[in-house]
């Protein structure tokens, strides 16, 4: 029964995560409110817009019960602007969407896929965490809800290539200590780059392991009882 997969999420699992993102739909049929396991679902009253999870939106779309309103960042104008930004700044990804304010301290902070970063009123100028998966899925299931699906598809492809090139280029800064900033990286990009990036860092760490261990021991001893013990150890060895 144990899971036979290696650590790290597989692409279908990332798509599964992405299906929890909220998107805006325009229902064509009424649906009463439902008590779902992930919280109550508001009743669907055409033509009132509602935000529902992507898996439900795709289900409604396939049965022609609703139309999906693509998020504003998935328009040709926004994608062109983001692509320009990506090509201009070669050493970092474009910044992620602005975070909502931090809720009071006792609740857990929200993070993708539970931030409303792909609804109709999301920010138009930033790519959310699940941009690639969401874009692909919407283009596949709801291409007729886009004004210019071919152009969007082309721009997404361009963005993906620019960003993958950055991810590959970033390999040069990897070293044994880790601590590599990856702000703005997307879910599928993490999934694709994980094995390589962590593999390189772990490999370098193992090469430098003995030197690091010495430094670690020395620092611990310095912290605990000054230099005296360290000198004694050396005497013993001689």
């Amino acid at each position: 029964m144990a899971l036979p997969l290696p650590p790290g999420l597989t692409p279908p699992e990332i798509a599964f995560l992405c299906e929890m993102e909220l998107v805006t739909v325009i229902p064509r049929q009424r649906l009463e409110g439902l008590e779902l396991l992930g919280g109550p679902l508001k009743p669907l009253n055409p033509p009132q817009r509602t935000s529902v999870p992507l898996w439900l939106a795709l289900l409604l779309k396939r049965q022609r019960r609703a139309n999906i309103l693509p998020p504003p960042w998935l328009s040709p104008e926004s994608l062109t602007a983001i692509l320009d930004h990506e090509t201009e700044y070669a050493d970092a990804f474009s910044p992620p969407p602005r975070l909502p304010p931090l809720a009071s301290n006792n609740t857990l902070p929200f993070s993708p896929p539970f931030l409303p970063s792909s609804t109709a009123d999301a920010a138009p100028d930033a790519l959310p965490y699940h941009w690639l998966e969401l874009g692909e899925m919407l283009l596949e299931a709801a291409a007729d809800d886009f004004e210019d699906p071919d152009n969007v598809r082309k721009l997404l492809r361009g963005l993906r290539e620019v960003r993958m090139a950055k991810l590959r280029h970033g390999v040069e800064v990897l070293d044994a200590g880790g601590g590599v900033p990856m702000n703005g990286v997307g879910g599928m990009e993490v999934g694709e780059g994980r094995a390589f990036v962590t593999g390189v860092i772990d490999g370098l760490r193992k090469i430098a392991a003995s030197r690091e261990q010495q430094k670690k021991d020395r620092e611990r001893e310095e912290r605990e009882n000054g230099y005296s013990d360290y000198d004694n150890d050396e005497m013993d060895m001689q």
Partner: peptide
Amino acid sequence: VEGTDRRFEMKRGDVWVV
């Protein structure tokens, strides 16, 4: 990161490989 000279600040929303 213990054993290295690597120090950095992690802020809300940041993504790091550590």
